[in-house]
Amino acid sequence: MRISKKSTLLLGVATAMLLATSGCSGGLLAADEAGSEETGTVKLAMVVPISGSSAPTGEYMANAAQLAVDEINEAGGVLDGRQLELLVEDEACDAQQGVASANKAVSAGAVVSVGGYCSGATLPQLPIFEEANVPMIIPAANSQDLVNQGLKNVFLVNGTGNQQSTAALEYMLKTGVASVALVDDNDSYSADITAETARLIEEDGTVTLALGTSVTPGESDYSAAVRDIMNAAPELVYWTGYYQEGGLIINQLRNSGFEGDIMVADGSVDGSISEIAGAGAEGVLATMTQTPDTLEGGGDWIASYEEAFGSAPGPFSLQSYDAVRVAAHAIDEAGSTDGDAIIAALEAIDGFEMFSGPLTFTADHTLSNGGFIILSIQDGAFALEDDLS
């Protein structure tokens, strides 16, 4: 998901912090030693936003991961009886916080990472976990920059940004949209989706790109962008940033008299967008991978989550639950907590059942089918609009 524009700088910061940590007592060397132990709990790192505006999503993810851990432990654990332990650390959707938390998890002996929400906080964690030879099974962050690093230890169990753009255009073509305005928040996650969508639109030639524009996240007044959209008069606006800004833009568009369709990307699929946008949120579309509410026959799983945590699951909870299950499967198949053995086991997965369907990783460690569906806000909540099948 969210990612800083200066990816190279972030990776440099991460590497510097990694080297500093590895020179300290209890750093990477200690983590390697802990990861090689053949007794005790098997530790999984879950670095997600626990503070900041995306904290509600981080809570969904951590809870769902813990639910999977508890179920696996109750069934006997991994490696002939060893229990899993989930180490939840805060990324706060912040690059430096993400690096610090990744270092902390490695030092504590995590052997697999099953976290990652904001891509801007996840990308600089890559060299930390790579150096420690810790496989990363990323359940939410999906910027193409994560894939483009070409790291052997990085696996995505959420559809990529490129797959999301394809789904967006597919829906536009299916419903006969003639013109679209693409609006991003000028960071790489969001800008990548708009750039890829624009490329696909140009390549296809059916839909007209009426406008492409960017806004600055964290502001309260987006009247300049709204004015440009109104002047361009598109039939559909596709917002690819996050729900905080998306809710404001939707509200200001509707108050300005925009009557066309509005679509948002997966970073805006959060119940809070309706609270921010008000009545204007009704009917807003979204490109998203599977959510608990759209899971066919998912009532039992939702009930288990609610019983455990006293509240309903939210976005990226299914993917986080599956990330833990995939990690446990790979550890058992590897027969050890050795990073290379787990990576080989992940690459060898062929048809492992997840909520999104049978899992087999592509050569670049992504899903062969992104699994994106179209949701719409109905009575203030996201519901299935189109499964694109």
Results as ranks from 00 to 15, higher is better:
Pro135Asn: 12
Gly205Met: 09
Glu203Pro: 01
Ala167Gln: 05
Glu37Ala: 13
Asn158Leu: 07
Lys152Gln: 15
Glu71Val: 08
Val157Phe: 01
Tyr222Trp: 02
Ser336Met: 08
Glu353Tyr: 05
Tyr189Ala: 05
Glu219Ala: 12
Gln149Asp: 04
Leu29Arg: 12
Ala100Met: 15
Ile331His: 09
Ile128His: 04
Pro49Ser: 03
Lys5Ser: 14
Ser36Met: 05
Lys174Ile: 11
Phe258Lys: 00
Glu38Met: 14
Val69Thr: 10
Arg2Thr: 05
Leu182Phe: 12
Arg325Pro: 08
Ser143Gly: 13
Arg2Lys: 04
Gly260Tyr: 01
Ile276Thr: 11
Ile374Asp: 06
Pro358Glu: 13
Ala121Phe: 11
Leu9His: 07
Gln83Asp: 14
Ile276Asn: 08
Ala95Met: 11
Ala312Val: 11
Tyr238Met: 09
Thr216Val: 12
Val226Asn: 09
Ala383Thr: 14
Pro49Arg: 02
Leu10Asn: 06
Arg227Thr: 15
Gly27Met: 08
Ile128Asp: 03
Val112Met: 12
Ala34Trp: 04
Ala191His: 08
Lys43Glu: 11
Ile72Asn: 10
Ser389Glu: 11
Gly271Pro: 02
Glu89Phe: 10
Met354Leu: 15
Ser376Tyr: 09
Ala303Arg: 07
Val69Tyr: 10
Ala327Tyr: 05
Asn133Glu: 14
Thr287Met: 13
Gly370Leu: 11
Gly314Asp: 02
Met230Glu: 07
Leu173Ser: 01
Ser165Glu: 07
Asp266Trp: 09
Thr213Trp: 03
Ser356Asn: 14
Gly298Lys: 08
Met288Leu: 05
Ser107Pro: 00
Leu169Met: 14
Ser119Lys: 12
Lys152Met: 12
Val269Gln: 01
Ile3Asp: 09
Glu89Tyr: 13
Thr39Arg: 13
Val183Ile: 15
Gln149Ile: 05
Ala279Gly: 06
Leu11Ala: 15
Leu19Gln: 09
Ile137Lys: 01
Ala31Asn: 06
Ala92Thr: 04
Ala383Asp: 11
Ala344Asn: 10
Ala95Phe: 09
Tyr171Ser: 00
Lys5Thr: 12
Val226Thr: 07
Asp192Tyr: 13
Gly283Thr: 12
